[in-house]
Simulated assay, not measured.
Amino acid sequence: MTRLFCHDHPDTLQLDATVLKTRPGAVLLSQHPFYPGGGGQLPDRGLVRWQGGEASVTGFSEEGGALWLLLPDGVEVAGEVRAEADPLFRQCMRELHTDLHVLNALVFRDFDGALVTGVQMNADGTARIDFDLPDADNDRLRALEPELNDVIAQDLPVLTHHVPLTAAHAEKGLLRSRSVTPPPSPEGLVRVIEIAGLDRQACGGTHLASTAASRPLKILKIENKGRFNRRVRIGLQGA
Rank of each mutant, 00 (worst) to 15 (best):
127 A>E: 04
93 M>T: 09
116 V>K: 04
162 H>F: 15
85 A>W: 01
83 A>D: 08
168 A>V: 06
111 F>W: 08
125 G>V: 00
138 N>K: 08
113 G>W: 02
139 D>V: 05
113 G>R: 11
113 G>P: 00
155 D>L: 03
156 L>I: 05
104 N>V: 00
150 D>W: 12
83 A>P: 04
169 H>L: 14
156 L>C: 06
92 C>G: 09
115 L>Q: 13
167 A>G: 05
90 R>Q: 08
110 D>L: 05
143 A>D: 11
117 T>S: 15
164 P>T: 15
84 E>V: 15
95 E>M: 13
166 T>Q: 15
133 L>D: 08
153 A>F: 03
111 F>D: 04
119 V>E: 11
85 A>L: 05
120 Q>D: 09
122 N>A: 06
104 N>S: 14
158 V>I: 14
145 E>G: 08
166 T>F: 14
92 C>H: 03
94 R>S: 07
139 D>M: 09
136 A>L: 10
98 T>M: 08
97 H>Q: 06
140 R>L: 12
106 L>I: 01
108 F>L: 02
138 N>P: 02
168 A>L: 12
171 E>C: 12
91 Q>S: 11
146 P>G: 13
125 G>C: 05
167 A>K: 14
126 T>K: 09
136 A>F: 08
106 L>S: 01
98 T>G: 07
91 Q>V: 00
162 H>Y: 15
162 H>N: 04
171 E>S: 15
158 V>Q: 05
148 L>D: 10
86 D>R: 10
135 D>P: 00
131 F>C: 05
169 H>P: 04
85 A>C: 06
133 L>Y: 09
88 L>T: 10
125 G>Y: 02
171 E>Q: 15
93 M>C: 12
105 A>E: 04
114 A>I: 02
127 A>L: 04
126 T>P: 03
102 V>R: 11
170 A>C: 10
158 V>A: 04
160 T>I: 09
87 P>D: 06
170 A>G: 13
98 T>Y: 06
128 R>K: 13
83 A>S: 11
106 L>C: 03
142 R>M: 08
152 I>A: 10
169 H>Q: 15
142 R>Q: 13
134 P>A: 12
165 L>Q: 15
116 V>S: 01
83 A>I: 04
172 K>H: 14
126 T>V: 02
131 F>D: 06
145 E>C: 04
156 L>A: 07
115 L>K: 13
119 V>M: 06
116 V>W: 01
109 R>F: 00
133 L>H: 11
169 H>T: 08
99 D>C: 14
163 V>L: 14
121 M>G: 00
116 V>G: 01
132 D>R: 07
163 V>M: 12
157 P>M: 07
115 L>A: 13
96 L>V: 07
160 T>V: 11
171 E>H: 14
134 P>D: 09
